[in-house]
Nucleic acid binder design. Structure first.
Lengths: 146, 146
DNA sequence: AGGTTTTTGAGAATGATTCGCAAGTGCATA
DNA sequence: TATGCACTTGCGAATCATTCTCAAAAACCT
């Protein structure tokens, strides 16, 4: 967590922005646990645990965190954006269960290589991967016999 | 196009729904060309070329087309859903240019194999793939020297 | 053609996200 | 430590895509 705060502080400084209390509150709420999150999660969590921060501020802070590289857009689900930590995390792909909404991650080192090759062929310079598949997770397969 | 109409007709019949004029207009507008589309595109195109159809009807028709397997959700861009033809089309991955918005498709036969293997390992049953990468396309790389 | 059900269009409603603005903070400087 | 100024915040209003409501129109059955 200290590391993330440090990175954030430097990023903000480089943009002539300030590490204010709400910004720090948001950062801590995000890195307190290790799961995917969306604006609502975050808002509720902050509201429960510590000094409130308005939704508007969360919406304004997320682009900063994205730009700093600390988090990234993971996927969209039910017309909400879902984010995940990205500092110190490898890329991976997501298996999203359309039945229970669970998200399972799988490593994609090999997949990445292939895609990079395709990008080279297309003369495309990749900055972000968005790889996911929807379907039924292990549990839901059992319970629905599929 | 005839084939698509046929499939659509049968699908609707199986659901006790009618192949009405607006539904046919929408289907034709979608399959008249071969590009990705969103609700706005479609609405504008129909408005230009033929009898008008309301946005509400387009929004109501898209789930039917999705369920029939004729189109599928391709990706989301600028908080809009973008669809593509899926009948008779292979899966592919998308390279989306964050500069000019262009979408380039790449084959992903090999990628698919790998992902399928990962899904087997995770005991996950895939129904849809959503594979894309963002970055700079060939043209935008040239013009921005990256 | 008459009766029934489905579908449509128009606009209102919704839900997520963004914006505008007045009040509050943080920080540099004196 | 007080002052000034730019950056931030919170609130509620605004926006945008999408969904809903409901009365009128169309399709189908006989």
């Amino acid at each position: 967590m200290e590391k993330e705060i440090q990175i954030y502080r430097e990023f903000l400084k480089s943009k002539n922005l300030k590490l204010t209390k709400p910004r720090l509150t948001i950062l801590k709420a995000i890195f307190r646990n290790h799961e995917h999150f969306n604006v609502d999660n975050l808002y509720e969590q902050i509201r429960k645990k510590q000094s409130n921060v308005s939704r508007a501020t969360i919406y304004r802070t997320i682009p900063l965190l994205l730009e700093s590289g600390l988090i990234k857009l993971s996927l969209r689900c039910d017309s909400k954006d879902i984010y995940e930590h990205s500092y110190g995390h490898e890329n991976h792909l997501h298996f999203i269960c359309t039945n229970c909404g669970s998200i399972k991650e799988a490593s994609f080192i090999k997949v990445e290589k292939l895609i990079n090759q395709l990008a080279v062929d297309a003369n495309f310079k990749i900055t972000e991967y968005h790889l996911s598949a929807r379907g039924l997770c292990e549990n839901c397969r059992k319970s629905t016999d599929q």
